[in-house]
C-alpha cells in the first residue's frame, strides 16, 4: 500500500488536515502532524482541546469528517485494524480485565493479536519485570495499586512488540514515584527504537520526554517544535513570580516598568523578563512581596498560548 502523495514515507503516524465535529461543534479543526521514527512526540492541550478525539481518529475508532490518517503505513480508518497489529495503546482510563490475574491479562490480550499462548507465555516474565511487577503473575487485578495498574497497562501495550506506542495521559493520577518510574520506562523504550505519541497536560512530563510536541487548542495546532525551541521562540528567558496581598496592585503600578510582560493570577504576578536584575533590585525594596526567580518553562508557553482561564 502506498502513501498518498505528499505524505512522508516510513512515518509511523501521519495526520493531515484532520477535521471532526460533534453536534455541530468542531472538536478537531484541521490538525496536521507527523511522527519521526524513534521520537517521542507530545500532544499538549487543555481539557477539551481535541486530544482524545485525535487519538481515536488515529486508531481508526472513529471516522474523521475530513482529512487523512496513515497509521503504521496504512490508511485509517479503512485499514486501521491491520495497522493496529503494530501499535500499542495505553488508554486514559484503566481498562485492564478485572476478571483475570496479571499474567492472564497479558496472555488474553496477546490472543487479540493472534499471538499463540506458547509464544507469549515465555515472554511474560520479562514484560512484568519491565513493568516492575516481577513475580506478580498470579495476583488479581483488583488488588493492584493505581501505579501498578498503569505499569501493567504499559506492559500489555507491549505484548505485540509494537513499533508505535500511543499513550493517552499515561501518568494522570499517579504519585511522583510512580510517574518517575513510568518516565524511566518510556525513555528505555525510546532507546530501543520505539516511536511514542503522548498526550499529557503535565508540562514537566512533556519537557522531559518529548523530542517534539504540538500545543493544540480548540482542535488546532497553536505551535509545534522541540520544547527548548518553543520556550525560546514564544517567551522571555526568565520569570519572576511575585507573591503577596499587594502583588496585583504592585503589578498594575510598577510591573510594566521592569518587565516585558506581566500576567496576574490571583495574588501572584508573573513577570516575564529577558534580564531579571533590575526587577529583582527593585523588589528587594518591597518587603511585603515575596519573589521566585526561575527560567521560563513550557508551562509558561502553554499558558501564554492557551490562556489562563479554566477549561472544564
Amino acid at each position: 500500500m502506498n502513501a498518498p502523495p505528499g505524505l512522508p514515507l516510513g512515518s509511523p503516524l501521519v495526520v493531515r488536515n484532520l477535521h471532526k465535529s460533534y453536534d455541530g461543534r468542531e472538536v478537531v479543526a484541521g490538525l496536521n502532524f507527523s511522527l519521526r521514527r524513534g521520537e517521542c512526540y507530545g500532544l499538549l492541550g487543555p481539557n477539551g482541546a481535541g486530544k482524545t478525539t485525535t487519538l481515536r481518529c488515529c486508531l481508526g475508532l472513529t471516522t474523521p469528517d475530513a482529512g487523512e490518517v496513515m497509521l503504521a503505513g496504512l490508511p485509517a480508518p479503512e485499514h486501521a485494524r491491520e495497522a493496529r497489529m503494530n501499535v500499542g495503546v495505553v488508554p486514559q482510563f484503566d481498562n485492564l480485565d478485572p476478571d483475570f490475574t496479571v499474567a492472564e491479562n497479558l496472555l488474553v490480550y496477546g490472543r487479540y493479536f493472534g499471538i499463540r499462548d506458547a509464544v507469549l507465555k515465555p515472554k511474560i516474565p520479562a514484560l512484568l519485570d519491565f513493568a516492575g511487577l516481577a513475580g506478580k503473575e498470579q495476583t488479581s487485578i483488583r488488588v493492584l495499586s493505581g501505579g501498578m495498574k498503569r505499569r501493567l497497562t504499559l506492559a500489555r501495550a507491549l505484548v505485540n512488540d509494537p513499533e508505535l506506542l500511543i499513550l493517552d495521559e499515561p501518568t494522570t493520577g499517579l504519585d511522583p514515584q510512580a510517574r518517575h518510574l513510568i518516565w524511566e520506562r518510556l525513555k528505555q523504550l525510546l532507546t530501543q527504537g520505539k516511536t511514542i505519541l503522548l498526550t499529557t497536560h503535565f508540562m514537566d512530563e512533556a519537557e522531559r520526554l518529548c523530542q517534539r510536541l504540538a500545543i493544540i487548542d480548540n482542535g488546532r495546532t497553536v505551535c509545534e517544535g522541540a520544547p527548548r525551541e518553543l520556550i525560546r521562540a514564544h517567551i522571555e528567558a526568565e520569570v519572576v513570580e511575585v507573591y503577596g496581598e499587594d502583588a496585583p496592585g504592585w503589578a498594575a503600578r510598577e510591573g510594566g516598568r521592569f518587565s516585558h510582560r506581566v500576567e496576574v493570577s490571583g495574588e501572584t504576578a508573573f513577570c516575564y523578563v529577558d534580564a531579571a536584575a533590575p526587577l529583582l533590585d527593585h523588589l528587594a525594596g518591597q518587603p511585603a512581596l515575596r519573589t521566585l526567580h526561575r527560567p521560563a518553562n513550557l508551562e509558561d508557553v502553554f499558558l501564554k498560548l492557551t490562556g489562563r482561564e479554566l477549561r472544564d
Binding site: 482510563f93 481498562n95 487479540y112 493479536f113 493472534g114
Partner: peptide
C-alpha cells in the same frame, strides 16, 4: 463499566 471492549478494540479486533 469495565471498558473491556474498548481495550479489545485497541488491538487488531474490530
Amino acid at each position: 463499566v469495565q471498558r473491556t471492549w474498548e481495550a479489545i478494540m485497541n488491538a487488531p479486533v474490530s
